[in-house]
Every structure is written in C-alpha cells, then in structure tokens.
Design a protein around this nucleic acid. Sequence first.
DNA 1: GTCAAATCGACAGGAACCTGTCAATCTACC
DNA 2: GGTAGATTGACAGGTTCCTGTCGATTTGAC
Lengths: 157, 157
Amino acid sequence: MPSLTKKAETFTALVLEVFQLNGLLLQAGDRLSAPAGLTSARWQVLGVIDHGPVTVAAVARTMGLARQSVQQTTDALASDGFVEYVDNPNHQRAKCVSLTAAGRRALRKVEQAHAAWAERMGASLGPGVLAAAVEGVREARLRLEKDLNPEEGSHEE
Amino acid sequence: MPSLTKKAETFTALVLEVFQLNGLLLQAGDRLSAPAGLTSARWQVLGVIDHGPVTVAAVARTMGLARQSVQQTTDALASDGFVEYVDNPNHQRAKCVSLTAAGRRALRKVEQAHAAWAERMGASLGPGVLAAAVEGVREARLRLEKDLNPEEGSHEE
DNA sequence: GTCAAATCGACAGGAACCTGTCAATCTACC
DNA sequence: GGTAGATTGACAGGTTCCTGTCGATTTGAC
C-alpha cells in the first residue's frame, strides 16, 4: 500500500465493502428466486418486462447492461416458458418480449419472498444507518459515473 | 411492487445502488489496471501474492473466492509472466505462487494509479458522507452475512 | 504404522457479464 | 425516393465467477 491518505483509505474501504456486499446480495437474490425456478439475473429481467412488453434492447438500456447479455438471459427465459416473443407493430425484426402466465406467476412468487426479505433486512438496520448508506453509495456512484465518463448529460453515445 | 414498507423500500434502493456502484467500480478497476497489462481480478490476486509466496488455495481463502476461480486467474498470470510457481517445502503438489520482477513492476504501477484515483474520489465525496457510506454498507453486509448463514462464528465450515 | 478425513491441483461444464462484427431494418435528411 | 446513419438481433469468442468430481497428498486419530 503506497501510503494512502486517510480519505483515499476510507474510499478504498468502501470499495472493498461494496464488492463483498454485492457478492452477498447476488447470493441472497439467487436464494430468493430459486424456489420459483429463477436466478437473480432472470428475475431482474422479468421485473422489467412486467412493466409491459418491450424489446430486448430496451430492457438492456433500462438495466444498464449490454444488449447481448440481456438477449442471452431472455432466450433462456423463453426456452423455459417464462416469456414469449410477440410481434412488434413498430419493428419487423425487433420483437417484443412479454410475460407468459407462468412467468407472471414466478415473478409474483419471487416478489413476495423479496418483500419479506427486504422488510426483515430493513428492520434490522436502523433507519438512520440505512438512509445514510443509500445516500453515501448514491453519491459515490454519481461521482464515479462522472469520473469514468465526463461530458455526458442524458444522451449515452 | 407488492406494497413494500418504507424500510423495505429504502433497503431495496440500497441494493440497486450497490449493484450499479459495483459495476462502475469493476469498470474503474479495469481502467486503472489496463495500462499495466492487468485486469481488476488479476490485480487483486497479484496484491495478495505480494504479501509473500502463498498457495493458490490460500489466496482463494483470503479473497473469499472459490479455489478454482483463483487457480484460473493465477494460471493466466503465470502464462503472462507476472507470477511463477515455486516449490513449496511443506507440500509436494501444492506449489507456492510468487511474483516475478515483471509482476512486481506491474503491481506497483497499478497501485500508483489506484492511489491517485482513490485520493481523487475520496476528496470529492466529503468525509462525512464517505464515512457514513462505509459504516452503512458494512452494517448491511454484516446483517446479510448473518441472514444468509446463521450459526457461524469464526470457523467457516 | 495405518487408515480416514481434509486439503490440494486438475478438469469439465455452466452462468452471467463483456466486446466485436455482421446483415437486416428503421429513421432522418436531402 | 434514395441514401447515410443508427438501431437491432444473431453469432463468435473471451473473462470471471460458480459447482461438482477426480486422484494425489498431507494431516490426524488410533
């Protein structure tokens, strides 16, 4: 460690904590969604599609992921019968993804489990600490976004 | 969203923020380490090995990852000449991993870039917000660890 | 000393992300 | 109406993690 200042050291500690928490959250998400036959990634995609039939590319933009990643997940969901591709009146090639009855059922099931879990975790954390954590992480995210990608308003290039 | 309480909603917001921040941090780490010919994952492994020659399994325990993941990264580092396997006096089969001169050089380079970046980010965040973020995320991590894995003191099974 | 259990490297296979490239399609400008 | 540019799905290939299994080695109980 090449002699970090205190600020830099605290920021580094935040980075390590976020890495660890992220890993645990993925694990928790998998555990929540497994009983419904889903995984974290597939559940999140279903959640976006639940707002209404959309194209794969639109889901990717919403989630901040690459188009191809979401395509892969969506294809897997389709082959498991949780979603289906329906015609898009605005585009011949880019079909819309829509929930099937089974998909809706699975999503509702995961959402119930998620609600109970979030309630439990939120209650065990104390409102002050929780709010401060959200605030701090959001601030860090915004600064980092600016740091990684200066010159960028609302239009991703 | 099946009617979450305020606590649960705030916790869910934390989860989403952590996911996003995690992605940006990985991106930042790759950018920091790319000029040295490394990636986030390989840099982190090099950092552990820098503390002294250790076995792959020990590195994995230190980082909280599966043995096999670290083995893969270490093999890649070895084939790029950043580390080498040296005999382990305590074990015939489990060799120790040691930094090469090139590995040490690359690691120092990344650490310098990391120090400047952490300084910049830490300075732009305000000490209060930063400390609160670390505190809050750590608390959340500890609760989540307990939630995922009750009954566990210091001995991982 | 012997034998069971834990640990280790090696290998196979999978999940979830990424980049890069291609042709098909839509959009916008002229 | 035609064409340039952006967007989209499809495909290939790579990275970083995972689980599961195997034989080799070390460790510990007896």
